[in-house]
Design a protein around this nucleic acid. Structure first.
Lengths: 141, 141
DNA sequence: GTACCTGCAAATGTTTTGCAGTACG
DNA sequence: CGTACTGCAAAACATTTGCAGGTAC
């Protein structure tokens, strides 16, 4: 998987494991915290360097979900063309997939003389709970 | 337009003018530079504060276009539902609009129990020039 | 005249980098 | 064994904030 002139160190192994240990999105800082909770010994610099490598290799996706710092989406390799709902209240992220959207995206892209590489679709929306109760279960405290 | 308990100062006027002086996307820092080139006298803090206000007011859109820092899209008020092509080589951004996509997005969103608020669609792609010549005219130096 | 606003500079937070020591292969 | 990698701490950025002084209304 990675033996392409790169060394497989304990630290990189840990970062990669933590990256794909969950399907949830995460930030670089939260992954570092996760690694250390797992009693792993890894520096901040190595986490950032390894994440950058995974993104460049196409195994991980960096997405801007409206929050302050960029998030990483570990499900990108499995389903390269999924989109994200982001709740305007609780910030909860739900992934979705729609073949019709994909097709239409391809058509539009080609009409404009482009050749699609990666698609990033975010929809800010309110979830059911928010509309009904005015607040999300997940919200804040 | 803004007299809703907010004072119309010279600085705010300048930032708003610069924001909508072009249809190009920009960052907070580049707008600050732009303001100062226009011999305007405004502080970094005021630029950030005014941009945040415009975004909250729905007159400006903050978008993550894959670059390091977030960009601002001044065309959001005119066409709230447009998407962006971002060239993988030269980073050039081209806006597009497609009603079919809009419709499909609405359907998918509702199917998942959400109510759409804002849609952000970015497509990373290679432009004609890049595919033909292997490099974009706009690229780098 | 009084809030609200600005500008500065410091604080905050994130990501990158130089370099000496470490360890994979 | 040599070279790539790590960790540290500092640097480089981007953005926010506290506060003293300024200004729109």
């Amino acid at each position: 998987m990675r033996s392409q002139s790169m060394r497989l160190t304990l630290q990189r192994r840990l970062v990669v494991e933590m990256t794909f240990a969950t399907r949830d999105h995460f930030t670089a800082e939260s992954l570092l915290a996760q690694c250390r909770r797992r009693n792993g010994k890894v520096s901040r610099a190595t986490v950032y360097r390894t994440l950058a490598f995974l993104v460049k290799a196409g195994l991980l996706r960096q997405v801007g979900l409206g929050q302050q710092s960029p998030q990483y989406d570990p499900n990108f390799a499995d389903a390269p063309r999924h989109g994200h709902f982001v709740c305007v209240d609780c910030q909860k992220v739900v992934e979705f997939h729609d073949p019709c959207l994909d097709v239409r995206e391809s058509i539009v892209t080609k009409e404009h003389g482009f050749s699609p590489k990666r698609v990033s679709l975010q929809i800010e929306a309110s979830c059911d709970a928010f509309r009904e109760k005015g607040v999300c279960p997940r919200r804040a405290g």
